[in-house]
Computed example of a mutant assay.
Amino acid sequence: MFAPKNVCPVPFDQQPLNEYLALKKSCFFAWSILSLNKYINTVLSIFVLLLTVIMPIVWILSYNKMTLWYVLSYSILSVDLIFVLLFTRLYLGWSYIVKRLLSATVFYEESGWYDGQIWIKTADILTKDRLIGLYQINPYITRIKYSLFFCIFFFLLEGIILYLI
């Protein structure tokens, strides 16, 4: 799956295709490329899990001065903030990999930060990387981007509602 050393001087771990495969296998990024139904179920289960963890914390921090509605509202606002941070990290990770896959050149480090090199991809490797980037990763990035916008919208809406009340 990786390019031979005589074709590609980039170290194994820094080759864009291998970075993609490693990100795809990682626990944090793997759930974001599930099928749409599993993705929605995972997001909802993470939401419920975070809500059950954060709600008692908000209740304790409020010193029992808030009503249950306020505790629930602040808990949902906190969970939305966590989701904004989570989706931002997912977006940045996947967009970095896509940028390296779609690029015609690859910057890599041989032994440290002081001796970086640039490798120009061959036509075959460039075609394969671009196909993977455009047709496998870009739909997931679009899904993550819409999820991020959705969470930001609801975070701002909840913040405005809590401010007005």
Rank of each mutant, 00 (worst) to 15 (best):
Y135S: 12
T88I: 01
L134M: 12
I137G: 07
N64W: 09
I82C: 10
P139C: 03
K145Q: 11
L164K: 12
Y163M: 03
K145E: 04
P4W: 00
K5W: 03
V71L: 09
F153H: 02
W31T: 13
I76W: 00
W69F: 05
A22L: 12
L162P: 05
L68V: 01
F154A: 00
V7S: 03
E19T: 05
E19G: 05
W94M: 03
A22E: 13
I160T: 10
T105R: 04
E109C: 11
I137R: 01
I46L: 08
S35F: 00
V48G: 02
F150Y: 15
Q15F: 01
I120C: 07
T88R: 04
S45Y: 03
I132C: 14
L61G: 15
I152W: 02
F154D: 02
R143N: 00
T122P: 00
G133E: 07
N6H: 14
I165Y: 01
R130N: 02
I120S: 08
Y70D: 15
D124R: 08
P4V: 02
G93Q: 07
V43Y: 07
N41D: 11
I141P: 00
I54L: 10
F83Q: 08
A104Q: 11
Y135G: 01
A30M: 07
L21S: 11
L162E: 06
P11Q: 15
V53H: 00
Y135K: 15
L50N: 07
D13S: 12
N18L: 15
T105L: 03
V71M: 03
L17R: 14
Q15H: 01
I97Q: 12
S62G: 15
W119Q: 00
T88Q: 06
K65C: 08
P4T: 05
M66K: 00
G133C: 10
I33D: 12
L156F: 09
Y91R: 13
I33K: 10
W94C: 01
I82K: 05
Y114S: 10
Y39K: 03
F150C: 11
R100S: 03
S26K: 10
F28G: 05
A123F: 00
S111K: 15
Y91M: 11
